[in-house]
Nucleic acid binder design. Structure first.
Lengths: 203, 203, 203, 203
DNA sequence: AATGAATGAGAGTTCATTCAT
DNA sequence: GATGAATGAACTCTCATTCAT
């Protein structure tokens, strides 16, 4: 009935960034294994070795935590794609590079990637969805190719969405097949991308 | 003083299939609008005009209800694809037909399609995921084309996954763009499918 | 991690109004003993012999429960005062009657009265406070007396507020003194009311 | 390039009493605006410009802080009343003086007064309630008047409680009516006090 | 078969208090 | 002395599921 005074005995054990990393790692594993909705903050805190309240020092609520994870991954992908795309060469070479970069990064971020593919309905604060920034980047790339007359014509948003779907499909297929190397998957993706979207490519 | 007209007896009870339809319709609207986790059984029952307990006569729990909805949609897609694919003609014609069939059905089932895209992490009873049966069908089709030497070679599961992603991407793009007709989207999808996966297709 | 299915085994034991009464009784005792903020819904439910969720069938939240209790008490007081005041006689007789009615009701509702005196800062939905309706009734009575030239003049809201305070003070004093009968307290209150607010009353 | 003026050294630390004053001021504003239970120690510390832990150097817990505030106000009132009451004159004059003193002080301490009226259920360490010391002082005054045969007879604790209620009612009425001057309210209170409690006063 | 009141585990979140720095 | 990150118990409220009617 009466609020009993907390017995708490906190210890300053680790520095904040170590804690944040443990928190993100715990959340990543649990979300991926059990699904966002089936994981409680208490579960995450326990796995991260911190107190429930400490989670809220880092992220204001559960959804913010998820978004932060997905956004950081998207950022990495977008940065990688921009870098690979802008390094010159013909469109064939650029697509090869981008696809390889995508899979190289995917390999490093496999669990996060899996999480992203599981939470497509988590709407961001601005109304966007996970994947939208990647798709926007694809749209830019497609626009470049169109301007040069190197790409097949089509409705830009639709073409970008298809290209994005193709990439996601490739990643899903690769993730489900442990025997397939990232380089191999990247090669096949690039091959389909080129024959599907680039002019004067023979199959 | 006014005699109530004895013309039509109020149908207090409806037959079970009418109820089931009302239930599915209610669930579809609510899940799509608010997301699976944010809709309660009580919400669904109220919208369907039945009692909470009655929901459990039809589906043993909430997840089973969702799965039934998604599975029925997948079934429809698979049946449609099988039918369109098996009607003969060269691979180009068959792909045209399949893509058109896909979008024609999508137009009819738009809300369900949206629901499916929102709930990718809902695992089915057999461990499969929504979309898996569609992908399996695509794999069969790709196998056909490979056997005839008409399709570009590649790792079968990966190619099927990419093709599946391409289809999903096309559908997502089409759903987000209300000005795009189903036939137009189907045409662009077919075009990319052919240049991306079929031999001797010029871009 | 996974939401474990409820084991629940509900029993329809008592009729709803019996339950509501048990709920109100439990809330009354606990709020009075420990203070509104120090009592949890779980405490109330346990004492009432019902489940936590059942509390929310009756009242949409904790504050609504409290307000319902206080409002019903206020209503009783207002009705009682209206009745006693409107029965005629000179102002002296009417005040005697009202004061006696007030204390007779107070005797019946002692715990609720105590609760009301403890929760003066609980704002109602319309921005009013507990006691405001009683005070409004007092204002009406004072207005009657003023119109007849029987009451001492003064700023109406202030005079009503003072009269209200006087009543509350009398009740608090009476509640703290178990040896004082309601009739006796009523008499002393009436006496002070008359000499304090009515013209031509000798002390 | 711009040299920061070395004229005034920034006072990084303030003396304890300045801090205590800031703390009390912050608490007063926040408690009054949002209610005791809705204000956190962190809120108070932030507004006072001190650290959370520092709050605990001054008051051992949140309730102690509240009590200290209310007790200091009560002390002020009691001292004021004692002073005004003991300065001689007949009872009419003494009551006039006390009432004026009460309202003069109330004007200075309006926020604290409001806080006191909001937290009637906060029990003090010795089991007393806010207002009890004021009431005890009133009892002393009433006892004086009784001894001299100047006051109307009655049960002492009850009469004191009624007088206290009258005072509180006057203050509440005055606080809710911004157009009413303290002197005017004091006059009306004194008038009712005299006709209500003092012998040979005509109404 | 249909109903919906009842259940209670469990969720996300808050915050008074502590104590290593 | 001052700080504020860390703690975790406790809170209100939800809702999938059950079963007496």
């Amino acid at each position: 009935m009466e609020k009993s005074p907390p017995i708490a005995a906190p210890r300053r054990t680790r520095d904040p960034e170590t804690k944040r990393a443990a928190l993100l790692d715990a959340a990543l594993h649990l979300f991926t294994e059990d699904g966002y909705e089936n994981v409680s903050i208490a579960d995450i805190a326990k796995r991260a070795g911190i107190a429930v309240g400490t989670v809220y020092r880092f992220y204001e609520n559960k959804l913010t935590l998820l978004r932060a994870m997905l956004e950081s991954l998207e950022d990495e992908f977008v940065v990688q794609m921009q870098s690979d795309w802008s390094q010159g060469g013909d469109y064939s070479a650029r697509l090869d590079r981008v696809c390889l970069g995508l899979f190289t990064l995917s390999e490093k971020r496999k669990p996060l990637l899996r999480l992203m593919s599981m939470t497509t309905d988590i709407v961001y604060a601005d109304g966007s969805l996970p994947g939208d920034r990647i798709q926007a980047q694809i749209r830019l790339m497609y626009g470049d190719g169109l301007r040069d007359g190197a790409f097949l014509k089509g409705d830009i948003p639709l073409m970008a969405s298809m290209a994005h779907g193709l990439v996601e499909g490739a990643m899903m297929g690769w993730m489900r097949n442990p025997g397939l190397s990232a380089a191999n998957a990247a090669g096949q993706l690039a091959s389909v991308m080129k024959s599907g979207f680039v002019k004067n490519q023979r199959s």
